[in-house]
Nucleic acid binder design. Sequence first.
DNA 1: ATTAAAGTGGGCACAAGTGGGAAAAAGTGG
DNA 2: CCACTTTTTCCCACTTGTGCCCACTTTAAT
Lengths: 148, 148
Amino acid sequence: MFRGVTQLSLDNKGRLAIPTKYRESLIAFCGGHLVLTADPAKCLLVYPRPAWEPIEQKLNSLSSFNPKTRSLQRLLVGNASDVEMDGAGRILVSPPLRQFAGLTKNLVLVGQGAKLELWEEEKWNQQIEDYLVLKDSSIPSELEGFSL
Amino acid sequence: MFRGVTQLSLDNKGRLAIPTKYRESLIAFCGGHLVLTADPAKCLLVYPRPAWEPIEQKLNSLSSFNPKTRSLQRLLVGNASDVEMDGAGRILVSPPLRQFAGLTKNLVLVGQGAKLELWEEEKWNQQIEDYLVLKDSSIPSELEGFSL
DNA sequence: ATTAAAGTGGGCACAAGTGGGAAAAAGTGG
DNA sequence: CCACTTTTTCCCACTTGTGCCCACTTTAAT
């Protein structure tokens, strides 16, 4: 399981160095075969390929005549791209994905259980701020009776 | 299964170079025999011919007295055209289809499971944006309880 | 302080993308 | 029916991009 925030950046070839603490388990779990895709919150999602496959299958099984479903397929499946870690544990982030998430210099890689999220640092901070402002009204009903 | 966004363009003969990562599987699956057709979202759909056949048969089996059905038949079957990949993995996009999808300089080819979509890049970005704006109300009910 | 391990950048070789020319095929008019 | 024009297809040469690998720098550990 992935967790924690790491600050990092793309080099001038658009490569992203995966932190060492994730590398070993990524190699073991999926041989360095990852899938990168777009998230509605305008960050990128980083999945080990075996974890991504069932999600894509589920999405592809839905009706393509429902416009919302279709849009979701376009966002998630359309933007998904296979990437391989190189010998130094780096992956290449394609220009369309960089553009989608507005990635420039300062990024954060955030562990989220079975996947990782890649954010432009400023957007990440913004996202956290936005949540704090809304906090009173924002406890999901699924968490009734649950405490930290 | 196809996935991911690739930026590309038509050359001045109207040819579209299919990215290498799709070529091999297209040759293997359908010998480079493709079907190009129009999508209601104003992009083009690219099917391996064997994947298209049953769709066309289904459409043709529907009642042509229902106006909506008839229109769908006209759009999809009417615009469908057979194309062959050349030795360099390129296909020719006919002027009527180019015009329909408003294809000019900057295009994207988007993997969508069993098929590909070809968009004018600007329209593709627009389509994604439009969806993100709607995101609160846009979780398809089929996905209740499903998470990324 | 020395050594090892990891991070970083860049060069090189090969593969893929691109454009154009020539030959064949199809279309058209006399 | 034949000759000429236009379009299409095939192929080759050139340019661009990508991935791989190596060397250098920095950090951490003993």
